[in-house]
């Protein structure tokens, strides 16, 4: 477990077990902010940042709580850290790019309830990654999330220009697209070795 090379961890999180398309984490922002490519890109970056911060923090918390034998508090501590990290990003974005702040809208505070981030913290604990491995895992997950978001946004931008039957407009069509993307990503199965 500890001998797992960093490149494999990265590849596994980003592509083979892609957080969105294979593990179903972070579906809400995936469907919600994937209408335009630039919004999707910024959302991906913001999420990746929160992932890195919360992954590092989760590592510390887990160590501390194991020392103190208070593991039942883990979930509450993780979510509190994530909420604070999101608050930080929100303040940062609001200060330096009000336009971006507006375009992300409600989905910025909702990063807190993005299960990809909490999922990342929980998975790295289950997999007993050390600090460097955790950070690489978070980076991979962030890249994978951004990749999925960008692919979806590209497809939906094209889709907006085509005529689809009125019955399949909206979420139904997005889900079908996501299904096809997920099918494509299944082609990578087995590349990374062990499955989470």
């Amino acid at each position: 477990m500890h001998a797992e090379p960093l490149s494999l961890i990265f590849l596994d999180a980003a592509i083979v077990n892609n957080f969105v398309l294979a593990l179903f984490l972070g579906i809400c922002p995936f469907l919600g902010v994937s209408a335009k490519k630039d919004t999707a890109w910024n959302m991906g970056l913001a999420t990746m940042f929160v992932m890195l911060v919360s992954s590092a923090a989760a590592f510390g918390i887990n160590w501390l709580l194991t020392e103190l034998d208070l593991l039942f508090l883990r979930l509450i501590c993780y979510i509190a850290v994530i909420a604070s990290a999101v608050q930080l990003v929100e303040m940062f974005v609001k200060r330096f790019s009000p336009a971006l702040f507006r375009s992300l809208g409600i989905f910025l505070p909702l990063i807190t309830t993005n299960c990809a981030i909490l999922g990342l913290a929980l998975f790295q604990t289950t997999k007993e990654y050390d600090f460097v491995q955790s950070i690489v895992y978070a980076l991979g997950a962030g890249v994978g999330f951004t990749l999925a978001l960008m692919l979806m946004a590209g497809l939906r931008e094209k889709l907006a220009l085509t005529r689809v039957p009125s019955v399949s407009q909206g979420a139904a069509m997005s889900l079908m697209l996501a299904g096809l993307l997920s099918l494509a990503f299944m082609g990578f199965a087995g590349l990374g070795g062990s499955h989470g």
Partner: peptide, 10 residues
């Protein structure tokens, strides 16, 4: 498998 979930919900 994962794609099935998307398809059925769709």
């Amino acid at each position: 498998l994962p794609p099935g979930g998307f398809f059925v919900l769709g």
